[in-house]
């Protein structure tokens, strides 16, 4: 479909206090079910820098290969137990020889077996129309064919279900569409990285 016949969707995501929510993934699915995933999607990257996954959230279309380069000077052991993709990259430095292909839609939680506090997310979208919010809580989905869509949003700290965020919108040629969410979010909980003193005793 020619780009001139497409439109954009502007999404804004905030928490219940009105603060912009970064790293929220917005997905638009055509109601008529007509869409095609790219047969050769661009490779995505989840880096490891200072013993953290960078970026902490990556959104990809189903079938996308993702590489996990390790830019730390220590080895990492990346794994996932998530039903959408179970895998393990045993201890390595540098760039693994083969990317991991994420072919099942869903949320894949990443961990490192050496550094327990490391957590990252790969959001695998069944639709080619998705985007991730920036620090301003805004995301822009581009090149949507005009028509009816169901849109939804996911965030690592989302208190409810992703399904509960579903909204129906109409994307029209030239005008596009706008959608806004105010989400209840849970406090971020991950294994503590900060040090704690080991308390000794004197006898």
């Amino acid at each position: 479909m020619a780009l001139a016949q497409t439109a954009n969707l502007a999404a804004t995501v905030a928490d219940s206090q009105g603060h912009p929510l970064a790293d929220a993934v917005v997905v638009a699915t055509p109601v008529d079910g007509h869409y095609h995933l790219d047969e050769h999607p661009q490779q995505a990257i989840v880096d490891q820098i200072d013993k953290e996954f960078v970026p902490p959230v990556v959104a990809v279309a189903a079938g996308t290969p993702v590489t996990f380069p390790n830019h730390d000077n220590v080895r990492h052991h990346v794994y996932s137990f998530s039903p959408a993709k179970r895998f393990e990259l045993p201890l390595y430095q540098g760039v693994p020889a083969k990317p991991i292909v994420f072919d099942t839609p869903g949320v894949v939680v990443l961990g490192c077996n050496i550094h327990d506090w490391m957590v990252g997310y790969v959001y695998v979208s069944e639709s080619p129309y998705f985007s991730k919010t920036g620090k301003d809580g805004k995301a822009r989905l581009t090149n949507l064919p005009p028509g009816a869509y169901v849109v939804r949003v996911w965030h690592p700290q989302l208190a409810g279900t992703e399904e509960a965020t579903r909204k129906s919108i109409e994307v029209t040629r030239g005008r596009g569409a706008e959608v806004t969410w105010t989400l209840d979010v849970k406090p971020e909980v991950r294994v503590r990285r900060a040090p704690m003193p080991e308390r000794g005793t004197r006898y």
Partner: peptide, 19 residues
């Protein structure tokens, strides 16, 4: 022993302990 530890950052903490 009891310890309450406040994470100032990923690399620093302030802790109060009693035993």
């Amino acid at each position: 022993s009891l310890l309450a530890s406040w994470a100032i950052s990923d690399h620093a903490s302030l802790s109060v302990g009693y035993s």
